[in-house]
Simulated assay, not measured.
Amino acid sequence: MKLPKALAFDVFGTVVDWRTGIAEQAAAFLARYMPGTDPGAFADDWRNLYQPAMEECRSGRRPFRLLDALHLETLVQLLERRGIGTAAIGEGELLDLAYAWRRLRPWPDVPPGLAQLRKLFPVVTLSNANIALMIAMNRFNGLEWDAILGAEVSRSYKPTPQAYLASAAALCLDPQDLCLVACHHSDLAAARACGLQTAYVDRPMEYGGARAPDGSYEQAWEWRAGDLLELVRVFTSH
């Protein structure tokens, strides 16, 4: 396998620890409005509404909407399912919690690993996150990318082929010269079907130690590593 010409990263789970970050930021809100609710379980339940919300856009049942907007919608949906009327919660407080996805910290290996990988290849995002969300997150956690690509560029959410192919086209690369780096087998499988190279990075604590829901999609990926620092060694030893 030849080396790729650029790396495109999934973000939520692969780069940032969304579950811990959402749980920490939701804790005070939950203590006030939903005492006794486990913040980690709340984060899981919110995340479980992520794919259904995007599928409404992917299927064409509704127009494309930015992920920031979907986060707010699914937050309101989750609260209403729990019997919490959002009319009693200030709009600013709801929006601040919805924007918790903009304030997520990376896994410990990411800052040094990403910096080293960036010396080898251009590094870009290939995320369902919108540009404003990613800019805010990057300013919060200090990560640097050569470009922010993904859903807002393609106007389509992963795992549609358009999401991957539009990112390759934006870089003026053939799909086989772009490598998706992700901890999700389903994401990698969709990228491979579009002709991209694939690099799996293991994140066993993404779901708090629980089994990942997409294990059935696992394949023999072109590249594989335990974290980004190991991925640097994999590429440099090739």
Rank of each mutant, 00 (worst) to 15 (best):
L3H: 12
P4F: 08
P4V: 01
A6E: 01
A8I: 07
G13A: 04
V16R: 13
D17I: 02
G21Q: 00
A27M: 12
F29E: 03
L30V: 07
A31H: 10
A31V: 08
M34F: 00
P35Q: 11
G36S: 06
T37G: 03
D38I: 00
D38E: 12
A41N: 05
A43P: 02
D45P: 03
R47F: 12
N48P: 07
Y50K: 10
Q51Y: 13
P52C: 05
C57T: 11
C57A: 09
G60S: 08
F64V: 06
R65A: 15
L66I: 04
L67E: 10
A69G: 09
A69I: 10
V76G: 03
E80T: 04
E80R: 07
A87M: 07
A88C: 03
E91D: 01
E93M: 00
E93F: 00
L97F: 02
A98F: 00
A98M: 01
P108G: 13
P111K: 04
P111C: 06
R118T: 05
K119Y: 12
L120C: 15
F121M: 01
V123Q: 02
V124L: 08
S127P: 05
N128V: 04
A129F: 09
I131Y: 09
M134Y: 13
A136H: 02
M137C: 14
N138R: 14
R139Q: 15
N141H: 08
A147F: 09
A147K: 11
I148H: 15
I148A: 11
L149C: 03
L149G: 02
A151R: 10
S154G: 05
Y157P: 07
K158H: 04
S167R: 00
A170E: 05
D174I: 03
D177Y: 13
D177E: 14
H185C: 08
S186M: 07
L188Y: 10
A191N: 10
Q197D: 01
Y200E: 11
R203T: 10
P204V: 05
M205T: 12
M205K: 12
E206F: 10
G208V: 05
Q219H: 12
W221G: 11
E222Y: 06
E222M: 10
L228H: 11
L231Q: 04
V234W: 12
T236M: 01
H238S: 09
